Simulated scan of single mutants.
Amino acid sequence: MDIAESLTRKGAAAVIVNYSRSADEARATAERLEDLGCEAEAVAADVSDDAAVRRTAERVRAAHGRVDALVCNAGTTRWVPFPDLEGLTDQVWRRLMGVNLMGPFYCARAFAPDLRAARGAIVNAASIAGPRATGSSWHIDRVGEQVFSEMAAKEELKAPLRRTARPEHVAQMVTSLLESDLVTGETLIGDGGRHLGY
């Protein structure tokens, strides 16, 4: 279960599924949510583009009139070995910061009036590379599915709970944070305790 489905099952009346590249997956998610009784729409917008984010906010405002929750879950990475400083080019750096740093800010700023009016909440999802200097994330497209699967299995064995986060775990954390009336400004790490060993 992903975040959108978890929110729908908790009673969300409408969900906007934002995407910048995976149009087919976004539309499939919207259709699945509609089957569950939620009004859903896939909307294309690159979160690193402030104008695109503002257009999305206007579209949501016009269609639904209110926003109770904003989940910023977009992210990108580029695998670069720590010693290879030249490998982290200006273009790569701008893309990483545009999506991972500016994106959540642009979204929060664009939706702020609606969230204030509804006394809504924002949840930003990010990589463990945010609070921990672990370097670039592993990539299936870099090492292949089999090697990636083997690496993930080894990571699970290193976690105290012998599990690492899957989509349903992230959905559970996001949903529980949105249901918590007095939690704000917190960082919640859900990786089965793996971060304790870094």
Rank of each mutant, 00 (worst) to 15 (best):
S6A: 15
S6C: 03
S6Y: 01
S6G: 09
L7D: 06
L7M: 12
R9N: 15
K10G: 11
K10Q: 14
K10I: 04
K10P: 00
A12E: 12
A13H: 13
A14P: 03
V15P: 04
V15F: 11
I16H: 10
I16K: 08
V17M: 06
V17T: 04
N18L: 11
N18S: 09
Y19M: 09
R21S: 12
R21A: 12
R21H: 07
R21T: 10
S22R: 15
S22C: 08
S22I: 05
D24L: 13
E25L: 11
A26H: 01
A28M: 01
T29M: 10
L33W: 02
E34F: 02
D35M: 09
D35C: 07
D35P: 00
D35N: 13
L36N: 08
L36F: 08
G37R: 02
G37T: 02
C38K: 03
C38P: 04
E39W: 01
A40G: 01
A40M: 00
A40P: 01
A40R: 04
E41I: 00
V43D: 03
A44M: 13
A44S: 14
A45R: 11
A45G: 07
V47Q: 13
D49V: 08
D50V: 10
D50G: 09
A51C: 05
R54W: 00
R54D: 09
R54Q: 12
R55S: 12
R55D: 13
R55H: 10
R55C: 07
R55T: 10
T56D: 09
T56W: 12
A57D: 08
E58D: 15
E58N: 11
R59L: 12
R61V: 01
R61L: 02
A62I: 03
H64A: 11
H64K: 13
G65A: 12
